[in-house]
Design a protein around this nucleic acid. Structure first.
Lengths: 107, 107
DNA sequence: ACCAAATATAACTTGACAGGAATATTCCTG
DNA sequence: CAGGAATATTCCTGTCAAGTTATATTTGGT
């Protein structure tokens, strides 16, 4: 989980991901459209591939990279498990303060 | 966006976040439950506070930290914008290959 | 088989940041 | 208001990763 988040949080890689939303692209195309040097693009793509955020299809001379869906689904599931944060009208502060109060009493 | 993701992707901070899911906690309690040194906890909480992932409420001697909902909603919105990745039955590879084919023709 | 294009890898430099120890600050309590 | 607990800040150090350059490798076309 944190691997995926870490990979995505890097600004250059986030750019690549946003670019790949519109469809698969080769390394050269990514490099050109983002004005990033090709070796850097390759390295970032390697990181993205290692956590299976993208998949590779070799076509002719090129290697075409494409987004996978699984990691995004995974993030989706994880972040939705926090939905109680905005769905419960009251936060737990009052409960916590009461607990604190209880602990301060010395029996 | 990437600031939030970066903050969350750090393993220690992710631990803190997971711990705070169950409710607000003071610095000392976090430090104890995660077996992390207090200054380290304070520093991570500062990072989380700077991107508004947590909020602080001073209570007596302590400072109680609590999760905010907004950043999680933000991530949720963002990641759901990728839902077309798993909802469309066909990926765009064929389309891309056709485009490639078109470009290779020299008029 | 050779040449050239596309991509990957290696070596290196540099900046950012996590972790640790010591210290400063804040704030309650008696 | 002095003492002490809880928390924040500062300084330091090592590590890791992003970026750059140069080079290796793969693959296709002719």
């Amino acid at each position: 989980m944190d691997k995926i988040l870490r990979a995505i949080s890097e600004p250059s890689r986030l750019q690549i991901i946003e670019l790949l939303r519109s469809g698969p692209l080769s390394v050269g195309e990514i490099s050109e459209k983002l004005a990033m040097k090709q070796p850097l693009v390759s390295k970032h793509l390697k990181v993205l591939n290692d956590c299976e955020i993208v998949k590779i299809r070799p076509v002719a001379n090129r290697r075409v990279y494409q987004l996978r869906s699984e990691p995004f689904r995974e993030i989706d599931v994880w972040v939705q498990s926090f939905s109680n944060l905005w769905e419960s009208r009251f936060d737990r502060m009052e409960t916590y303060l009461a607990t604190l109060q209880g602990k301060s009493e010395k029996p």
